[in-house]
Amino acid sequence: MSRDNRIVRVIKGRRPKVVVIGGGTGLPVILNSLRQQNADVTAIVTVADDGGSSGIIRNYINVVPPGDIRNVLVSLSDSSQSMLDVFQYRFDSKDAFFAGHAIGNLIIAALTEMQGNIFDAVQTLSKMMDVDGHIYPASNEPLTLNAEFVDGTIESGETEISKQRKQIKHVWVTDTDTPDETPEAVSPVIEAIQEADVIVLGPGSLFTSILPNLMIKNLGEAVRTSPAELIYICNIMTQKGETESYTDAEHVRVINDHLGGKYVDTVLVNAGKVGPDDLDYDRYDEYLLQVKHDFEGLQKQCDCIISDNFLSLHDNGVFHDGDKVATEILNRAFQHTKH
């Protein structure tokens, strides 16, 4: 759908302001659909990833991991498809350094060095790529995710935390370079949250894509005090080392517990059934079972529950239907604000 043919939706003469907070592969799908439905989108993207190409680049040149930011840039860009294909191209060379790296990750890392920080680098790239919306790294500095497990042990690093396969009690973030300093989000991030009509969490890994953002002190406080409705898009599948055996209600409980109260207003839960042959578990090896529905538990955690078949099955994977989810989000933007 071209920009001119998008659904026109306005609030008092303007596009609805939707702030989406998270990371991972599910986020770009929702962002693209919101953009197509004429939302004024701001994506606040996690910077605590330490795996894959992003993690290797981070270790080599000590920049914020660029992978999630790269995918979000593409999802909101009006650049030509050929340019986006180049930006997303991943080297298959056997070269010890370039193998597996996405060109976009290298460009983001280079611009970060040129600009002196990741925030300005992403704003420059947004202009170059004709991005419709705003893309803000959750922090200008690389962050390390830390977790305490129910058994009292502590682990650091997204990858190491997931590898433990233990039940997580709570998580927090520290500045990777200066652990004694309190991580903060830059002022445009806080302003976007304060001015939003709705704030959306997810979809994405609960402990490693969503909560790291909320654990940035001033960002979490902005979410708690915002007049906007807080919407959580619940995951379709449970995830190894994070949400094993979690119901949808337990996902919401964990968010509320980390925020320190009952803050989630609305939750979107999938009612479609994932069949035994719908998901290639070898390819998507982080997933376990479909998240079970607990309506009574959800009622205790939030005010509004929207249940529908939000499934999109393709590429041997299980994903959210971005258009359906975006429609529900925008409906909430028009119907409700937090009092």
Rank of each mutant, 00 (worst) to 15 (best):
K163Y: 03
D151M: 07
T153N: 12
P142T: 11
T182D: 11
Q115L: 11
I103V: 15
L106Q: 09
S93D: 13
T176V: 09
E141K: 14
F87N: 11
L106M: 15
V171S: 05
Q115E: 15
S93G: 12
I135N: 04
A147K: 04
V64T: 15
T112H: 02
L76V: 02
G100H: 05
I161D: 01
L145H: 03
D92A: 00
A109P: 14
T144Q: 12
D151W: 11
A147C: 04
V186A: 10
T159E: 09
V63N: 07
I168E: 00
H170P: 03
A192I: 01
T182K: 13
L145A: 05
N140Y: 07
N62S: 15
D177K: 12
P137T: 03
D151I: 09
D68T: 09
I108D: 07
I108W: 04
K127A: 09
T159K: 05
P66W: 03
K166A: 00
Q167W: 08
V63A: 12
I107S: 05
G152D: 04
E160H: 13
I193V: 12
F87H: 08
Y89D: 00
I107W: 09
R90H: 00
D68W: 14
P179M: 10
D180N: 12
Y89P: 00
Y136M: 06
Q123C: 08
P183V: 09
S80F: 06
T112L: 07
Q194Y: 02
T178N: 13
A99D: 07
F98T: 09
V74S: 11
V186G: 07
G116I: 10
P183C: 06
L73H: 05
I103D: 00
D180G: 08
I154D: 06
Q164E: 09
S156I: 07
E184V: 14
S126K: 03
D177P: 02
I103T: 04
I154Q: 10
D78R: 15
S187C: 04
E148P: 07
N105V: 01
M128N: 06
S77K: 06
D68C: 08
I135R: 07
L125T: 05
E113V: 11
K94I: 11
S187K: 12
I190W: 01
L111R: 10
N146G: 03
S75R: 03
P137Y: 02
D180I: 12
V189P: 06
G133C: 00
A110H: 13
H101L: 14
R90C: 01
E184T: 14
A99H: 15
F119V: 15
A138G: 03
V72E: 09
N105P: 03
G133V: 00
A109R: 05
P142H: 10
I168C: 01
G116K: 11
Y89W: 09
K127I: 10
L84A: 04
D120V: 08
A192P: 00
N140T: 13
H170K: 14
D95S: 14
E181Y: 10
E160K: 13
D175P: 05
I118Y: 01
H101N: 14
Q194V: 08
S75E: 10
V189G: 06
V171G: 06
A99P: 02
G133R: 03
S80Q: 07
S82N: 12
M129V: 04
V122R: 04
I135H: 03
K127G: 08
D95R: 05
D85H: 02
T174M: 08
G157D: 01
A147D: 05
P142L: 10
E160D: 13
G116C: 10
A185T: 06
S77A: 05
S77M: 03
A109V: 15
I107K: 04
T124P: 02
